[in-house]
Design a protein around this nucleic acid. Structure first.
Lengths: 359, 359
DNA sequence: CGCGCCAAAGACAGCGCTGTCAATTGTGCA
DNA sequence: TGCACAATTGACAGCGCTGTCTTTGGCGCG
């Protein structure tokens, strides 16, 4: 590149002092400035002070590319997701960003298709190209165990967020969320209101979380001695339209359910719309519950009973774990329990005599 | 760093061949490989072929950090936003990502507070730290003209997305969206249905788009010779709760409106919930219209009449413009017109005699 | 047959930072 | 006071790539 001194000065005007500039001004070596900038110990307080003043004065900001190229890694992590749910994605991004900003790491966002066979290789390339320090893997990417094994083989640090009742203790760090338990709580809430026929709208076949929630639903029914009926469980993906269609199918049954539990809020919103579109009222004719506490659940009418799952906090925690791990610190896995939030979309079923579809 | 040969070999195993590796295998210089990798002209076809085979064989991927550090810029752009709306943000990200993937650029996501006085300096630091090639500025960041002037002074390329009826032709490249016209269309739609008292729920005081939409509303009323009443225009931000509160206030008026136009879909969803919460029905008692065509509008019941604004496509276009500009190509500004989408939330007003609040 | 010219390819010096290791200084203790 | 040893600091060589400049080789033309 060979830039002249003049052009370097011009660059400086637009605001990019380098380590060397700072070093010259503080009368120390570049390496010492590097030490101060990275908060390393072995620098005498007065030297540190001098360097800090020079940094301040020149408004020095380390060039992340150079740091990444030079060092063992780039002080940047990747957030990998494969999810159709906008709120969920955004909450995850916010959580990751909060942790990264706090710990002075960069963040790269990476949507992907978790079903491709080359998942591990794709992620490896992603990491290598930008020399990422590690990955936060969210569901369902975090459930592709074979790909994860490969990733580990490539010596790529990662933290998984998974749906599990307890710490899997398999040596792979993770944050686990007890979806089964939360689904159990929601179903129990409906049962205690007096519902017996409760529909369940499944989501994302490939999502382990969906299976866990279904398990919680079944466990609760079993606990109350209520038979599990196939016709009350409808397949679908994590999207509104499937919720709408699924709920319509349930309502068309000879003996329709008095309550519908959607596997996430978007599905539940679809169910809500479906019920209202047939002229029935929520919660008087049909109760509806969701899962996630996304804005969907708060911003519908009536607002949805749901399980609060703070994706931002969960991902922030996972990100902090990852960075701690990258720094060589020991970290314990951590569990989260979604919490039941009761809102206006659930109520006791209408006495049988009056429950008849109008029209 | 001084790594041993052994350790380099190990690294190679996990998949990061370098320019030099490829050069050695192809029997050419590193620079020639660089030329091939960057699609430069002056390489003889047979040489290019040989290099490509070596690249293929070694599964070579350029290290983006090194490329960015070395070259004039990092082949990465930043997407800057300051917006409370999840769908909007996500749509924008998807649009930017589509363009970046296609053109082999990286993307950095950057939420920010557009109201801070140091906006220009913050963005400059953001650019310098990662040596970004340029920025896509979305509303309302794109409306901070003073900060933008500073940015231009720092020689940072950017493209704005703004709310304007026509090309401002001010020398700063932009994509412009005619919000006024779309709001005019929505208001006209309501007027043609027979509504006379139409409420307007404002959004985001700092958003120029909000003012443009208000202008469209007023222009339409004026065109139909209907007086503009202050009590029918309610302040608020772009969020559900303000829509809810604002609609309640409108309904509490001595003479409430028969239709409510929310400045975006989230506000309209709030208004929808407010109307339904008072026991009135949409659209029979009150019509509601939104703006944006976000999932909110499709996923409520009834689905909302709105103006379709494809944030993904708009941002993708802006991103392509930015990259073209970075490459030194000439690009013309481009305009988008949101399009009226009529759904179930709007209908003719109920004949006066029967319009009385129950309860 | 020799010359100039242009396309193709290579040499080399960085970009701004960090890891390693050597040099320097200061400290405690015999 | 002198010495071993630890705490600071600095010198230097890259990280993997690109910009500039130089060299090489093939070709047309007088």
């Amino acid at each position: 590149m060979t830039r002249t001194h003049e052009s370097r000065e011009m660059d400086r005007q637009v605001g990019s002092a380098t380590l060397d500039d700072v070093a010259r001004r503080a009368g120390v070596s570049a390496k010492t400035v590097s030490r101060v900038a990275n908060g390393e110990r072995s620098v005498r307080p007065e030297t540190r002070e001098r360097v800090l003043r020079a940094i301040e004065h020149l408004d020095y900001r380390p060039n992340l590319l150079a740091r990444g190229l030079s060092g063992a890694h780039a002080y940047t992590i990747g957030l990998v997701f494969d999810n159709p749910n906008a709120y969920y994605i955004l909450a995850m991004q916010q959580g990751a960003l909060a942790a990264c900003d706090d710990l002075h790491f960069g963040l790269q966002i990476r949507p992907c298709d978790s079903a491709v066979p080359t998942l591990a290789e794709d992620l490896r390339d992603f990491v290598h190209r930008s020399r990422l320090s590690g990955l936060v893997l969210t569901t369902p990417v975090s459930e592709r165990t074979k790909a994860l094994r490969k990733l580990a083989g490539y010596h790529i640090p990662f933290v998984r967020i998974i749906s599990a009742a307890r710490d899997p203790r398999d040596g792979v760090p993770c944050v686990y969320v007890d979806d089964r338990d939360a689904a159990y709580a929601i179903t129990t809430h409906l049962l205690q209101l007096g519902h017996v026929r409760i529909g369940f709208l499944r989501g994302g076949k490939h999502h382990h979380a969906s299976a866990e929630r279904l398990k919680g639903y079944k466990d609760a029914l079993r606990h109350y001695g209520i038979p599990i009926r196939d016709e009350l469980m409808v397949e679908g993906d994590y999207v509104f339209d499937d919720g709408f269609r699924g709920a319509r199918r349930l309502l068309d049954l000879a003996e329709p359910p008095t309550a519908i539990f959607g596997c996430n809020d978007e599905i539940a919103a679809g169910a809500l719309a479906a019920v209202q579109s047939t002229g029935l009222s929520v919660p008087h004719d049909v109760s509806i519950a969701g899962f996630e506490d996304s804005p969907f659940s708060r911003h519908s009418w009536p607002p949805l009973t749901t399980a609060r799952q703070r994706a931002d906090i969960i991902v922030e925690r996972a990100t902090r774990m990852l960075i701690a791990r990258i720094r060589g610190e020991h970290v314990d896995n951590e569990g989260f329990n979604p919490e039941l939030v009761v809102r206006g979309s659930t109520a006791p079923p209408r006495p049988k005599s009056r429950r008849r579809k109008p029209r």
